[in-house]
Amino acid sequence: MKPALLKEVIKSIFSKPATIQYPKELTPVELDARGRHYPDLSKCIGCSLCMIECPANAIIMKKIPEGYEAPKRNPKKIYPSINYLKCVYCYRCVTVCPTNAYVTTSEYRLGTPEPIFSDDLSLKTLVSGGKSD
């Protein structure tokens, strides 16, 4: 008796491989997929709501370091710092933010041996806003 899968197997031999050669070739993801996100500090008011609501406790509030001028709308001069290795990418912080300060991306390549935080990305938004010394 002929094996039932034979036709399928012969077809597969002559077709393109289904495997994606990551990291040489990137996995296609949706543009609005939940990837790396960071707070835009020109919009952040330092209310800490994202830290309170985070289910993974991945967000801590840090003081805006010396050399950066905090916006007037942020009187406490604090900003959220996301630990990306703790984050579960549920985007609860994005949806509860009262000023919609979070910038979302579909970046998923976050594998690293060291802990990574959102600080650099966030502080860049402050510099690009022309608020630094």
Binding site: V29, D32, R34, Y91
Partner: peptide, 19 residues
């Protein structure tokens, strides 16, 4: 992924609707 924004962990439901 198209519907919810992630392949596996959807985090799609919220009180009063979807996300």
């Amino acid at each position: 992924e198209i519907l919810t924004g992630a392949r596996v962990l959807a985090d799609y439901q919220m009180v009063g609707g979807v996300r």
